[in-house]
Simulated scan of single mutants.
Amino acid sequence: MELTIIGCSGSFPGPESPASCYLLTAEHAGRTWRLLLDLGNGALGALQRHIRLDEIDAVAFSHLHPDHFSDICGLHVAAKWHPGGSGPGLIPIFGPEETARRAAEVYGIDPDPGMSEEFDFRHWADGQPHTVGPFTITPYAVWHPTPEAYALRVQAVDESGEVRTLTYSGDTDACEGLTEAARGADIFLCEAAYQDGRDEELRGIHLTGARVNSTAADAEAKRLFLTHIPVWTDPDKVFEAAAAHYSGETAVVAPGASYRI
């Protein structure tokens, strides 16, 4: 399984990166499968440097804030109107219960049929897994100010028969669901939007580097990759707090970078 960072800017696109979007690829049944985790503002353009849009096998949304969700509108246009078609069948879209309705509202179309002629909308339930090709995706409810927010635990079997695990935090503060989602993960891709020494008193929205550190250590995650850092947050300070006393590899991700899981 391979992770490619399409967009990692926190809260809105930055000068060097789109908002949140992560591409997972894995070989299975004689072909490459491609799963997107989130599709935030500006991500659809950058994604096309790596794959064609008709190669997307599924999209999994952590929650429905625009910096994680809004480029579903562009994908809908591509799926509906591309002269060559959008590929075989409807694209599976996993997300909160309101995903289909919200997508139609954002694009300004009637929810019936909305985007249901292009996408197969499937709803998360806390702890209930879904399978797409080689990927098993399990959502864990987390702490963020929206009706439904999830961390996503994605597993796939590698060439040696070993199960590999990526956990993506979505947006959240420290909570039990996040720790359970990250338990023993090979890569813990975790948001770190808040800066230590400035934002500790803000709770129930995002993580500081220190709170990421504590979660990664409690979960015994093997590698910690920091993402969703806004333009006003210093990534060096976040890194220092997240890496302190944590025994695993720690890094701040960059758009376009790829990592083997």
Rank of each mutant, 00 (worst) to 15 (best):
E180C: 01
E180M: 04
E180T: 06
E180G: 00
E180P: 00
A181C: 01
A181R: 00
A181N: 01
A182C: 02
R183L: 14
R183E: 09
R183Q: 09
G184T: 14
G184K: 11
A185T: 09
A185V: 07
A185H: 10
D186H: 10
I187K: 06
I187R: 08
I187Q: 03
I187G: 02
F188M: 10
F188P: 00
F188S: 05
L189C: 03
C190E: 06
C190T: 14
C190N: 02
E191R: 02
A192W: 00
A192K: 00
A193M: 12
Q195F: 10
Q195S: 11
D196H: 11
D196N: 13
G197N: 11
R198C: 10
D199E: 10
D199M: 11
D199I: 11
E200L: 06
L202A: 11
L202G: 01
L202F: 15
R203E: 10
R203V: 13
G204L: 06
G204D: 05
I205C: 05
H206Y: 12
H206G: 00
L207R: 05
L207F: 08
L207W: 04
L207V: 01
T208L: 04
T208I: 04
T208E: 02
A210N: 09
R211V: 06
V212Y: 10
N213A: 15
N213F: 07
S214Q: 15
S214E: 15
T215P: 02
T215W: 03
A216Q: 12
A216I: 15
A216W: 15
A217P: 01
A217S: 13
A217D: 13
D218H: 09
A219R: 08
A219S: 08
A219I: 11
E220H: 14
E220A: 15
E220D: 14
E220G: 11
E220K: 13
E220V: 11
A221P: 04
A221G: 03
A221V: 10
K222Q: 13
K222V: 12
R223A: 14
R223K: 12
R223G: 06
R223Q: 15
L224W: 15
L224P: 07
L224N: 05
F225Q: 01
F225D: 01
F225P: 01
F225Y: 15
F225C: 00
L226T: 02
T227P: 02
T227D: 07
T227M: 08
T227V: 13
T227A: 13
H228S: 05
I229T: 05
I229L: 03
P230N: 04
P230G: 05
V231M: 03
V231H: 05
V231L: 04
V231R: 02
W232K: 03
T233P: 00
T233L: 01
T233E: 06
T233R: 03
D234T: 08
D234S: 04
D234Y: 03
P235R: 05
P235T: 13
P235L: 09
P235E: 12
D236S: 05
K237M: 12
V238Y: 09
V238N: 06
V238T: 11
F239C: 02
F239S: 04
F239K: 09
E240D: 14
